[in-house]
Design a protein around this nucleic acid. Structure first.
Length: 922
DNA sequence: GTAGGGTTAG
């Protein structure tokens, strides 16, 4: 032993008390460091010094490098320096550079490299490799550039190292440059260098270049090259590889499993894994867990996971993620706790995954538990952990915790900002979301599609057309558009009332999906263009778009607002075939649709079939009966609902108050209005006041109605004054009417309907000067009266008529028919046009001509012209039906023996045998 | 005589 000590002064003490890293590597493998030092001493004793000593140094340095033992490496380094063996120094120095690189001590490696009097290409490659393996990719690329500048004879090893750096940086420019250089120097016959090149192209998604290099391969090709091909082109290549009799490795299976899209191929790959005896490989097993999880086979994923003997953090985290992806949040949290019991500490990925489970399932307490764990382990300052904590609190609606979690993130990136912005949007903080966007823009932070999406939703909710346009401009300038963003823009413009903008964007979407179509249908429905909505939904069906339940709901609301029973029934049939009609929201929408299409009996049948009746369903049916003037039935249902312990909300009370109003049930209406606050603690909204005012007013309790308005707890809205004004018009009460008119024009001066209502009030009283003044004001403001418009469904088509319409192809026949009808009614029923309803100061003949041209009459005439006798007719009008037309239709129902259902802007009128269900109260 | 390429979790 003394020889050894003399030679290298490596005290036995320093070998017997190695740094802690060695104690964790007990004498398991023959190649461990102690063993090699032991054989080193033997060599020193047995062989003569000089050359063989250098070999021994080299061997020890190899072992130090393999064990990554910087401490021992430095000891050996000190000895080499002592020996001053300049002759062999370059060779050993290269080994030392390599060792320092492996041990992560780049400074030592660089210092030694700089001290070397001469440097071989090995030395250059050693330092280059050190840069690459420590993620110093930019430095590596720069170092390579320096080498080229100094005319260092670069070899294939140099190329593969620097190409690895290029792949990390996704630097195709540099990659292509090296590619050219490799062609020039004939390195393309070196498999390893070629593979490095392929991996650059694969990382940069240049599949064509990958294919080109693969086709230029020699022989059946290197297995690594095949693996790269699998990750680029997927499973087809995997099959080809097996046919080409290339032996797969663990890398092959990981790539194949990653490329696997469906269970059947996954199972086949699993079988091949068994065949090659690689099922015990941890990498393969981990990839299997992920594959089974993605194919929703959580049982198989668990089975693979349980059989992994040497689970690493990736195994645990893959299983954790498998539970979360498959919605098994409790299981994932249990597993998170189990990690600790396994003697491990959950790492940042475990924490992120567990937090996302808590967020998705809204488990605030578990979320706080994981948050605490992150705090204790110093993980909370990690960027991604911080963002996930923020997101978890956002999803649990704890906005204050969300705010403070966000503030704690030291260096926020665009993802953390996206998280907080979408957090605000999820929790109705739309203004705060827009404020945050301003901060992002000021700080010059990168903006991605996800962030844009949240911001667009904020615009939509705030109905801020100016911000929406600004964001849209930004998206176009930055080319941030994708299908999701485009759909959201359509939605935002639709909600802001910009139908033309929405349509333009919609038409520009190249690959429209069901969401794009639904957004456009929604846009039309929201903006009162239900006809357009139906047209576009037909286009959607013709193009073979698969409808989902949300699309169906949108189309249903178009059908509902148009009252086309036929379309409604078609949709209903479609839903039954898809078993979608039982879904709660769809069931209520169907009840609503039948009610609004004049088939309240069908609505009731559906209601009876419903398995469970929630408040929305009850409200839909009550509303249906209300619209049809069956107030008593609506009240009966309301009582039944109360008896079944379903508690009404504001909307239910609106429905029941409207029902009372349409059936002139004054006492009942008053009573419901009181119960609402007294019994159910619901403060009435302005809409409830408007409803009661309408009821009282039309029943000629105008004074009571006015008092109600004056005692309202909030400022009366335009709708309230409008209801009062309508009643004043019916009862020709000019004093109250004028008060209401002034208020109404103050509050809502841009609505043409208000001017028409006021002018009609004066017309009934024949105050033509006032009529003229109101119409003049309207013209000065550039407002136009909405034209009257009615439509009737004949066969599978809607026929639309506006006032004095002549555009219908059978227009002449329609007017002839109308004249015939009128003559018959004048002759047989003594019908005489009530010219007071023609609210213009013109001659009587002209007034009769005007009444003749009302849209509902044209629709009625067309219906009688084109349908067989006794066929019921369903007509819908955008405004309220005119009084003379109402009388006319009653007579038609008797003298032409037709049931006629008219839905106007307010309610339904069922005409039969000369009577109307509204009992002339509307 | 020294070294270099391709895998897993969010």
């Amino acid at each position: 032993m003394s020889t050894l000590i003399q030679h290298i002064n490596l005290s036995s003490a320093s070998i017997s008390t190695p740094p802690p890293i060695l104690t964790t590597f007990p004498l398991l493998k023959p190649t461990n460091l102690r063993q090699s030092l032991f054989s080193f001493t033997h060599k020193l004793i047995l062989s003569p010094p000089n050359k063989s000593l250098d070999e021994a140094y080299a061997s020890v340095l190899d072992h130090c490098a393999a064990q990554k033992s910087l401490w021992h490496g430095k000891q050996i380094h000190a000895h080499i320096i002592k020996r001053h063996n300049v002759h062999d120094f370059m060779f050993l120095a290269t080994k030392l550079v390599l060792l320092y690189g492996k041990c992560g001590s780049l400074l030592d490696a660089e210092e030694l490299f700089d001290e070397m009097p001469e440097r071989s290409i090995f030395a250059y490659n050693a330092l280059l490799g050190a840069y690459v393996s420590h993620g110093e990719t930019r430095r590596a690329i720069q170092f390579y550039a320096d080498m080229r500048f100094l005319d260092v004879p670069v070899d294939a090893h140099t190329c593969s190292s620097v190409l690895k750096a290029c792949a990390g940086e996704r630097d195709t420019r540099c990659g292509r440059e090296i590619h050219g250089y490799m062609i020039k120097l004939g390195f393309l016959c070196n498999d390893i260098a070629v593979n490095s090149l392929v991996s650059v192209y694969a990382r940069c998604d240049d599949a064509r270049a990958v294919k080109l290099l693969f086709d230029q391969r020699s022989g059946k090709g290197d297995v690594v090259l095949w693996n790269l091909m699998i990750s680029t082109y997927g499973l087809i290549v995997f099959g080809e590889m097996l046919s080409a009799a290339v032996t797969p490795t663990t890398y092959t299976f990981v790539a194949a499993l990653q490329a696997c899209k469906e269970l059947s191929s996954g199972v086949q790959i699993h079988a091949v894994v068994f065949k090659y005896g690689l099922c015990w490989d941890r990498y393969v097993a981990n990839a299997l867990v992920v594959m089974y999880s993605e194919c929703s086979r959580i049982d198989e994923a668990e089975r693979v996971f349980i059989n992994i003997d040497d689970r690493d953090s990736v195994s645990w985290n893959s299983m954790l993620a498998a539970y979360v992806q498959n919605g098994l949040y409790d299981e994932s949290l249990d597993l998170f706790r189990e990690i600790t019991r396994d003697g491990r500490t959950p790492d940042r990925v475990s924490v992120i995954t567990a937090l996302s489970a808590c967020g998705r399932s809204g488990k605030l307490l578990s979320g706080m538990e994981v948050h605490t764990f992150a705090l204790k382990n110093g993980l909370d300052l990690d960027l991604q952990v911080g963002s996930t904590i923020t997101d978890m609190y956002a999803k649990c609606s704890k906005t204050r915790f969300m705010d403070s979690a966000f503030r704690r993130i030291p260096q926020k990136d665009f993802i953390s900002w996206t998280t907080i912005i979408s957090g605000y949007v999820q929790n109705n903080g739309h203004m705060k979301a827009l404020d945050s966007l301003r901060e992002v823009l000021n700080e010059g932070i990168y903006i991605d599609k996800m962030m844009i999406e949240s911001v667009l939703i904020a615009c939509r909710e705030l109905k801020s057309i100016s911000v929406a346009k600004e964001i849209h401009g930004y998206i176009v300038r930055r080319e941030l558009s994708d299908i999701v963003v485009q759909n959201t823009i359509v939605d935002a413009y639709g909600e802001c009332g910009e139908v033309d903008y929405a349509r333009n964007i919609f038409e520009l979407i190249e690959m429209k999906n069901v969401v794009s179509w639904t957004s456009m249908v929604d846009c039309y429905v929201r903006n009162g263009l239900a006809n357009e909505a139906l047209k576009i939904s037909h286009r959607m069906v013709r193009q073979g778009v698969e409808l989902d339940s949300i699309a169906v709901l949108s189309i249903l609301s178009a059908v509902t607002s148009l009252s086309t029973l036929r379309k409604g029934k078609e949709l209903h049939g479609f839903l039954v075939r898809r078993c979608l009609h039982l879904e709660k929201s769809i069931a209520s929408s169907l009840v609503d649709m039948y009610g609004s299409c004049g088939a309240v009996d069908n609505a009731h049948k559906l209601f009876d079939c419903a398995k469970s009746r929630d408040l929305v369903l009850w409200t839909s049916l009550i509303n249906g009966y209300g619209m049809h003037g069956q107030g008593k039935m609506a009240i009966k249902l309301f009582r039944k609902m109360e008896a079944e312990n379903v508690h009404p909300d504001h909307i239910t009370f609106l429905a029941i108050l409207y029902a009372c109003s349409h059936s002139a049930l004054v006492d009942e209406g008053r009573r419901f209005f009181n119960t609402m606050s007294c019994q159910y603690g619901l403060e009435p909204w302005p809409q409830h006041y408007a409803c009661l005012v309408d009821l009282l007013g039309r029943a000629n309790h105008l004074q009571e109605a006015l008092e109600l308005v004056e005692t309202m707890k909030m400022e009366p809205t335009a709708a309230v004054w409008c209801a009062l004004l309508g009643a004043c018009r019916i009862h020709s009460n000019m004093e109250v009417g004028e008060i209401a008119a002034i208020k109404l024009l103050e509050m809502d001066p841009k609505n043409p309907g208000n001017y028409v209502l006021i002018s009609n009030m004066f017309a009934v009283a024949e105050r033509w000067e006032d009529v003229e003044e109101v119409r003049m004001r309207m013209r000065l403001k550039g407002l136009k009266k909405d034209p009257g418009c009615s439509w009737v469904e004949i066969g599978d088509r809607l026929h639309t008529f506006i006032t004095r319409d002549r555009s219908h192809p059978r227009s002449d026949e329609i007017y002839d028919k109308l004249t015939q009808i009128t003559e018959k009614l004048e002759r047989d029923a003594g019908y005489k046009a009530q010219t007071s309803y023609a609210l213009h100061n013109v001659e009587v003949v002209e007034k009769v001509r005007m009444l003749h041209g009302h849209s509902e009459r044209l629709a009625l005439a067309y219906g009688l012209l084109t349908t067989p006798q006794r066929t019921p007719l369903r007509i819908t009008k955008n405004l309220r039906v005119c009084g003379d037309c109402h009388a006319f239709t009653k007579l038609v129902s008797k003298h032409f023996e037709r049931e006629i259902v008219v839905r106007d802007a307010n309610r339904f009128h069922h005409f039969k045998d000369g009577y109307c269900s509204c009992r002339d109260f509307w």
